[in-house]
Every structure is written in C-alpha cells, then in structure tokens.
C-alpha cells in the first residue's frame, strides 16, 4: 500500500529516555496513582470475593476469592496498560505535540513507541503487583511461585499497551476509544476467565475466547499466583509475545504514516 513505510522497526536506547520522561511525570502524581492501584482492587476483591464468594464457594477447585484475585492481577494489568496506551499516548501524540518535539531529536517513532510500550507495561506491572500484594494480605497467594507472575504481568502490559497504541494511531479523538472498550476490552474482561472459568461457556464461544490474549494471560497468571502447575505455558507465552510484537509493528507503521508525512 502506498504511503505506508513497512520497514521493520528498530528501537534503540533512546526509547529509555521516553520511558524515563513518563516516569518523571508520574512521580509527581504518586498519591492518586497509589490510591488507584491499591484502593480500587481492594474494594473489588473484598466486595466480590468475600461478598459473592459466600454464595459461590469453590470455583475450579479454588476459593472464589483466590480465583478472582488471580484473575484480576491479569485483567488490571490489561486495563491499566490499555488506558495508558490510548488516552495518555493520544494526549502526548496529538494535543500536547510531545512526539513532534521528540522527533526533532535523533529519536524516531520506533523509539518513541517502544518507550511508550515499556511505560504501559510498567504501569500495568504496578497495578498487577498492587493486587498481588493485596491478595497476599488476604491469604490467597500460594507461595513463592507468585513471583514468576511478575514478569508475566509485565508481558501482559506490553501486549495490551501495544494493542491500545494501534487504536491510538487510528484515533481522531478520545471518543474513538469507546469502540475498543465496548467491542474488545469489556468482552475480554467478562469472557476470558477472570470472573468465572471459560469451560462454563458454550462450545463455540470457548473457541472464540482462545484467540483473545486475555485468556492466555489469565491461564498463565492464575496458577502462578495460587501455586498450581501451569499448563501449556509455551503456547500462552507465544500468544502474548505474538500479540505484543505484531501490535508494536503495526502501531509503528500507522504512526509513521500519521507523523512522518
């Protein structure tokens, strides 16, 4: 297609400068950020886990609170990285013209988006770890294997940050993001095994959710958090890595078309 530069992206060290810029901004908004990271999941977990748990009892051989907490570790990394990759990246790209300023330096779009994606993953990691800590406090973490969930949560952040940036590259305004939330994020939240096991879904829908990345994120994180063996880890990791790298590539190509004209 004309006007698309499909050259493979090559991110360099400059990506870290973009990441560091975001860390510096975030540092001064630490108070509200921590409240969001810890306060909200705590309320969810206590409300659903304890309240609903009484009626639900065991789910997939786990106490409902443990089932839910381990699922929310994955889903909150998704939503946090998604928000960052859409609203914040759009703000920096369009109204704030931050990328225009950065493109006047040796950095290229490849570096900018790599830095942004790392930052999305960093924020996803912070919210995932916050829930992990809350969960540990509530006694649902099954042992040291939960530490392995941390790099996985980072990867989940990369995956959903990258996917969100594709939407950002295509967006004319913030309203556009509603489509993505309603058509993809909320359905994944409901169907990919965060609140209930996917084997309760109709057969065809079970096939559909297998192509959604959150399914694989939950399938990795849950056993790691509760201390159970992980099935098909290679498959789940490959799906997440595949989504992450493909969406980075597509986002770079789309933003190139938008900014380098």
């Amino acid at each position: 297609m004309a006007n698309f530069d499909w050259t493979l992206p090559r991110a360099r060290r400059g990506a870290l400068a973009v990441w560091r810029r975001n860390v510096l901004v975030w540092r001064r908004l630490l108070g509200p950020a921590i409240l969001m990271n810890f306060g909200e999941p705590l309320i969810y977990l206590l409300g659903f886990g304890l309240g609903l748990g009484v009626f639900v009892g065991q789910v997939a051989d786990l106490p409902y609170l443990a089932f839910l907490a381990s699922g929310i570790v994955a889903s909150s990394a998704m939503t946090t990285a998604t928000f960052e990759g859409m609203y914040s990246v759009f703000t920096r790209m369009v109204p704030q013209r931050t990328y225009e300023a950065i493109l006047a330096t040796p950095l290229e779009i490849d570096d900018i988006l790599a830095g942004e994606m790392l930052w999305c993953a960093t924020k996803g990691l912070m919210s995932g770890v916050a829930i992990l800590l809350v969960g540990a406090g509530l006694g649902v973490v099954g042992g040291m294997s939960a530490l392995w969930a941390i790099p996985v949560v980072f990867l989940i952040g990369l995956t959903f940050g990258g996917m969100a940036m594709i939407m950002t590259a295509l967006a004319d305004n913030y309203d556009f993001f509603s489509y993505y939330f309603v058509l993809l994020v909320t359905p994944m939240m409901m169907l990919c095994g965060v609140f209930f096991p996917i084997d309760g879904l109709p057969g065809w829908l079970q096939d559909v959710v297998q192509i959604l990345p959150l399914t694989h994120a939950v399938a990795l994180v849950r056993p790691l958090v509760v201390g159970a063996p992980v099935d098909a880890a290679g498959l789940h990791l490959s799906v997440l890595i595949g989504y992450a790298s493909t969406s980075y590539y597509l986002a770079v190509v789309l933003v190139r078309r938008r900014l380098v004209v």
Partner: peptide, 8 residues
C-alpha cells in the same frame, strides 16, 4: 533537561 535526554 528532558529534551537533552532525548539526545542521549
């Protein structure tokens, strides 16, 4: 300062 960091 931040702009200088983009130049490494």
């Amino acid at each position: 300062r931040v702009y200088a960091s983009y130049f490494g």
